[in-house]
Design a protein around this nucleic acid. Structure first.
Lengths: 208, 208
DNA sequence: GTCATCATGTAAGCCGTTACATGATTGC
DNA sequence: GCAATCATGTAACGGCTTACATGATGAC
């Protein structure tokens, strides 16, 4: 989960842990509460297994200098850069590697363990997937939700009091809306596929 | 979380672990994947801390005998009952205690840690709460979701591609619907409170 | 000079999972 | 007798949280 999210963000360019966390919080509601205690160890792990590398002596992130006292700022920065290998402050900037990109794609299309959380995350990164994988992801999720509706939600149970029933009903509605949303996405996805690669249609039949 | 759910179910009558799990799966979508590896230890814990007790020699749960071979079934059952203290099979039936009921109420109104999961669970058990606690729960949740909308979801970010944007939009819609739902519940809750305890309305002003 | 914020990291622990082990009962 | 289901339990491990520890920088 976290690995996937981090690698996905790093696909868009090098970043450091503190900033990655901010972006996780704002861009992915589901991982909104992810803490430093998770992400720093995760980044270390990814570095040891070769998925990411630290940017040595990289330009210390283009920052609009926030008014005045430039000389002091620059002096401090140069001092730091001379002292360590890192840029401004003690940031540790990570960049995704080729191996990391492969690993990312593996995680993205790993069809096991797709609950609501990892589904949303995967879909958010769907542009990195081949079209068939996207469709497969959407359809797998749809099937799961339909299944869920049949066997789990029981809003019409006469035993339930108003509160339990309200929760059950609202949950069911949510699931139905998710399915409708997925249907729209699936339709769009198929349209896009057909448009970009109009299949060999010898023996064209009238559309059903 | 699990403790709360288990105690809540046991409030409706004694049950054994296997059956409790089934009910968790069907009644609470959010805990749909809870496993035996969680619930048996949880029940043991609850027993040691005095929240539940095992039903000794209780009637082995009224079961509609599933066709034929009655004599054999009954013989086996009687044998089992003579041998151990438990009913049919080796079921271990738990019953909530007075202390357990208190603990349940504590867990229910413990306002720390209310994410989506525990909110739904608590609301499903809301009939056990005093009216003010119910209102407080609903309003706390509402405030959280409003907060979430302002700081987390960013569907209008120009950087997002269609997939990320679609996820962000759909998430935001979901949150908005949740808020609308909570508003209905809050309104209903207030109406009920006013009806049962019409407040001292000396100096009645015309409604704003 | 001190406070808030930025920034990284470690350690302990919680809560849940999977996998494994065991055994009774029923249906075929 | 064998498989499926019901039923309980343990052990190892995973992922994430909280709390703690550290320190640099910038604002006032």
């Amino acid at each position: 989960m976290l690995d996937l999210a981090l690698l996905g963000l790093l696909e868009e360019g090098p970043e450091h842990g503190y900033e990655l966390r901010k972006r996780l919080r704002t861009q992915f509601g589901l991982l909104a509460n992810v803490s430093f205690g998770s992400i720093y160890p995760a980044l270390s792990r990814l570095e040891t297994n070769g998925s990411v590398e630290t940017v040595e002596g990289g330009s210390p992130v283009a920052l609009a200098p926030p008014t005045g006292s430039l000389s002091g700022e620059w002096a401090a920065m140069r001092a730091r850069r001379r002292a360590g290998t890192r840029g401004r402050r003690s940031r540790k900037v990570y960049r995704i590697t080729t191996a990391g990109r492969e690993f990312f794609l593996t995680l993205l299309s790993d069809s096991t363990a797709d609950d609501a959380r990892s589904f949303s995350l995967r879909l958010a990164f769907a542009r990195h997937m081949p079209p068939e994988a996207r469709l497969a992801l959407l359809e797998r999720r749809r099937a799961q939700l339909v299944q869920h509706l049949t066997e789990v939600v029981t809003a019409d149970d006469p035993e339930l009091d108003i509160y339990a029933r309200s929760v059950a009903e609202h949950t069911a509605e949510g699931v139905e809306q998710d399915i409708a949303w997925l249907d729209r996405l699936i339709k769009a996805e198929r349209a896009a596929t057909d448009a970009s690669a109009p299949p060999n249609r010898r023996k064209t039949r009238r559309s059903a």
